[in-house]
Amino acid sequence: MENFLQQLINGMTLGSIYGLIAIGYTMVFGIIGMVNFAHGDVFMLSAFIALLVFLILTQVLGIAYLPLAFLIVLVVAMAFTGLWNWAIERVAYRPLRGSFRLAPLISAIGMSILLSNFVQVAQGPRNKTVPPMFTDLIHVTDGPLSVTLSYKQILIMAVTAALLLGFWFLVQKTALGRAQRACAQDRKMAALLGVDVDRTISLTFVIGAALAAVAGVLYMLYYGVVNFSDGFTPGVKAFTAAVLGGIGSLPGAVIGGLLIGLIETFWAAYFSADYKDVAAFSVLAVTLVFMPSGLLGRPEVEKV
């Protein structure tokens, strides 16, 4: 039982990271119907930006107070990753909008290769290890249930929850959110009604990247290691999460992320760590075969 609770918390932590990345996939898919393959690498890029900013803050500027450094890292990483994704959309995807449907996908795969190799060339191929942070543990010892929580995990879940709330507000309550949903429904009609479609799509990429950057910061914090090739697997898992939750659905992305995180963690804990990815992918395949629009996606009635 205590192991179960422990794994539940570990799984939720991992799932938060996946969920944050998954939102980027699901938003972009919702608005332009494109699988943004480079999103995983944008996440990896953000982890590197976070790493560099953290090192600059502590070594060059000499900020020793960790929570302050963490906050600055978070904000700066969100801003610069947003800029990156804005530029990527502008250069690699916008010229292909409305063109052959596979062209943006190939462009995105190319971008993914480009980004990971750019980071490899610019920062070197070796693992970058950061000093451990927020490592204090809390032992929740309460009779038969004893669960250990680290500050890291609390921080990750708290930051995720806070940012998701903010993001939810942004999408549901603001003009930008309305424009976004309008574009997702019918881009042409939205344009006719005076929505600046280009701007809305750009902002979607920026927001998606900012959330991926949060995931990147948390990932760096949690694992303490980043590598240029770290984008692919979390990217694929997050995409899986987005599809599992029902692609196009924002709550679906978060729930899908949590589910993938939990499945992976529990599988690793109770069955075999080697096959944890197989478990996540199998769940995806089974869900899609029996529930093709995911958990929360709108079922698509075939228009004849």
């Binding site: 063109s99 971008m111 480009l114």
Partner: peptide, 21 residues
């Protein structure tokens, strides 16, 4: 050789923009 895959990825993007079909 270090830039091989970097250029490969870049070429994919450029070629798609040049000839999407």
């Amino acid at each position: 050789a270090q830039y091989r895959m970097l250029i490969f990825g870049l070429a994919m993007v450029v070629m798609m923009i040049w000839k999407p079909r």
